[in-house]
Write a protein that binds this DNA or RNA. Structure first.
Lengths: 210, 210
DNA sequence: CGCACGCTTGATGCTGCTCAATTTGTGTGG
DNA sequence: CCACACAAATTGAGCAGCATCAAGCGTGCG
């Protein structure tokens, strides 16, 4: 563990800094210590969100383990602190320290499951349903608040829901008839039961703990 | 390694046997030794393909590592031999044997990257493009054959491409104008360059090695 | 032969993207 | 404090992609 940390560096980044560029070789294992980041991919001039990263977790550990180029890009969404560990060092310790390695394995497993859940959501649900379920999931983490605040701009949210800005707007409007009220970035949940009825959340798609 | 194998059992299954039921607790680590299997999910009465499993690899290792229910189901597509290792034993060895653990980590990393690639394909491409790229990818592995044979029925292929049987049929018809000829389950590639031109394959979506 | 199953083809409608116009919101400088 | 500029968000119209339903075709098997 010492050998890990003496080569690592903790850095502070403002919002909107691109930390990883897809298709570049993996050079560091990034650990988000504080803040918020997104994993995204650039395709045909557009951007699509792959996942959101909350502290404390690593991002894109798979590229380091596989010793392969990154499949997606990453940027900070708010001011964040990130721990950078040289890839070389990580792979070295993966052959020595069992505690670290099985921690990495757990991290990979969690990320993998997240990705499968996202895939399931896209295969089986419409845009509005994905949005409704995102709102429900978000409302759970902020300890029973009746109000969800989108922590980034709407374009970013749209790219993570898997739609365009325009349709996100329409979808939010549509949910107005299903227990929700919109005020800029604030989404007030007036009738949670009605929203749940519409969204039909499933444990194995929407529950981040599963 | 001995402790792993003395608790494991190698079993033979015919085609179409469901080995894993989603939402059930993970009891075994499955290793496909020979044959072909698919990971899929059941949603609203339909089935959607998540991934295909070729030998030799594990399936759904993440559920065992996380000690959580499976997120998807798995079945054999052809007669297959599968090694079953009790989950308990796997987790135990994950705290002891570094070689095994880092092998699992690599396996998880590969699966994770596969899932991200599938997600990218769905976000950025149309059904026909996904199909065209699947054909190209398939043609690569069978050592420069000019002909791809779908190794399962079309409904299954449709579910993995992310469309319906009907639209798969239409899409195959459409590709007829782009260098391909269809004869039942055989897809003859007459003009690979033209197909590539249409499909615009990307290394970081379609190359299974990356 | 006739039935079952898988594949194809057609018609129709919904979802969601694109483009464009308008409104709202936000920060800036006079 | 207002006027203005610029970006973000909304709204509308039109259209492409794809699902759905339904019917027609082909092949294999009892």
């Amino acid at each position: 563990m010492e050998r890990l940390l003496d080569a690592a560096l903790l850095q502070q980044f403002p919002a909107g800094v691109v930390l990883i560029h897809e298709s570049s070789q993996a050079d560091f294992l990034h650990v988000l210590v504080e803040g918020l980041a997104e994993i995204y991919t650039e395709q045909d001039g557009g951007e699509w969100g792959i996942s959101l990263v909350y502290p404390v977790s690593t991002f894109i550990p798979a590229a380091i383990i596989c010793d392969q180029p990154y499949l997606s890009s990453a940027r900070t969404l708010v001011k964040s602190r990130v721990l950078l560990i040289p890839a070389e060092r990580v792979r070295e310790i993966c052959n020595q320290d069992i505690v670290f390695t099985s921690m990495i394995a757990k991290e990979l497993a969690r990320a993998y499951r997240g990705s499968v859940k996202k895939l399931k959501g896209h295969l089986a649900r419409s845009t509005v349903e994905r949005l409704a379920n995102w709102i429900l999931a978000e409302s759970k983490k902020d300890a029973h608040q009746e109000c969800v605040v989108i922590p980034f701009d709407r374009g970013t949210l749209a790219s993570h829901i898997g739609t365009t800005r325009e349709n996100l707007s329409r979808s939010l409007g549509y949910l107005t008839d299903h227990g929700v009220r919109i005020r800029g970035r604030e989404i007030a949940i007036d009738d949670k039961d009605q929203l749940i009825l519409f969204a039909r959340p499933q444990r194995f798609i929407d529950d981040p703990m599963s």
